[in-house]
């Protein structure tokens, strides 16, 4: 870490963003006689580290690239910042880990009845046996298929409707008002109606997921399209871009961040819808597995189901996050987050 170089661009007396290993974000502030290094480490408090000016060579060219060797003061600070995240991970998960231990201890000593809640060890054992006899995979596959197809329908419907109402005034008049009214209905209240309409097969479940998750996609994409910077649209006009080109190069990429926000909400809602749909009427799926277990007082199976739902939610959130970092790589915040 010693003699670590900081590369930055200096202009006048402003703040200069710079990057270096171990720092998420560094700002160099140049005064007349001193340089301050401000760094934001892992959302920790903003720190100001004064550096004695150990300028090795060259002079501060007002607009050139500054390549300087960090003084021992800053160099000492660097290792701390490099190992703080690891310590952070430990402290972050220490408390949940301790709680699980406590839970296990309470079950083992009989303090907590396994009729109310199974012990962590029991959950793991049950999860393993359900996996071995294949019932867990079967139910999981069914649930995934329902959520996946519902979400796919929601995506197509939400995006199409948002494009119609976002790109034309007439479309907005036709599409937006009914949707704004519909969205105030709690989608779950439609369960009885859906069962009446679609029976008890896959259709009502997929339809429920699709209905619930189209709204966040529609609403966010619509908002994104409508809130494109008018100055960029004006620029497109002065450049002589056709309407189709403007939509492709300006409007859609500009609304993409909002679409991804909507997608993230949609994924969360799709699991919620699925849980309800599978618990109300189903003969397969994770929700059904849990409802079945209730009849036999199998809290362990119910908890396995809960864990699965939790993992599914976590995994899908990670996928959307991954989409955001890859598709929105033009955002500086993502670049810094990834390089840290």
């Amino acid at each position: 870490m010693h003699g670590e170089a900081i590369f930055g661009r200096l202009s006048g007396s402003g703040s200069v963003p710079a990057r270096s290993a171990g720092y998420n974000q560094i700002t160099l502030n140049c005064g007349m006689n001193n340089i301050y290094l401000t760094s934001r480490m892992n959302q920790a408090k903003l720190r100001r580290i004064p550096i004695e000016v150990p300028l090795k060579e060259g002079t501060a060219d007002m607009s050139g690239t500054l390549i300087r060797t960090v003084s021992p003061v800053a160099a000492r600070a660097a290792p701390r910042s490099a190992w703080r995240p690891r310590l952070g991970v430990l402290t972050r998960y220490a408390s949940p880990f301790f709680l699980v231990l406590l839970w296990q201890a309470a079950c083992s000593t009989g303090l907590l009845s396994t009729r109310l809640v199974a012990s962590p060890a029991q959950i793991v054992a049950t999860g393993w046996s359900l996996t071995r006899d294949g019932s867990l995979q079967t139910n999981l596959a069914v649930s995934l298929a329902r959520a996946g197809s519902g979400l796919a329908i929601a995506f197509v419907a939400g995006v199409s409707l948002a494009l119609i109402s976002g790109l034309s005034r007439l479309g907005e008049d036709i599409v937006d008002a009914p949707l704004q009214i519909l969205r105030t209905l709690p989608a779950l209240a439609l369960v009885p109606l859906f069962i009446l309409w679609f029976g008890i097969g896959e259709t009502p479940k997929i339809a429920l997921v699709a209905l619930g998750s189209s709204f966040p996609i529609y609403l966010n994409l619509h908002k994104g399209i409508r809130s494109i910077d008018p100055k960029l649209l004006e620029m497109a006009r002065t450049l002589g871009l056709s309407r189709a080109r403007t939509i492709r190069d300006v409007i859609l990429p500009g609304a993409l961040p909002d679409l991804l926000v909507g997608l993230r909400f949609a994924v969360g809602i799709s699991w919620l819808m699925l849980v309800v749909a599978e618990q109300v009427n189903a003969d397969s799926g994770i929700g059904h597995m849990m409802m079945d277990a209730e009849d036999f007082l199998r809290t362990d199976i119910i908890l396995v189901g809960l864990v699965i739902y939790g993992l599914l939610g976590l995994a899908s959130d990670q996928i959307v996050r991954f989409l955001e970092t890859t598709l929105l790589s033009w955002r500086p915040s993502h670049r810094i987050a990834r390089s840290a």
Binding site: K231, E234, M235, L241, V250, P253
Partner: peptide, 20 residues
Amino acid sequence: VFQESRLLPWKRVWQNTVLG
């Protein structure tokens, strides 16, 4: 050319230059 550069943030500098 306006006071603000009005570059599209999601296109690289060279793509912005030859936009359209």
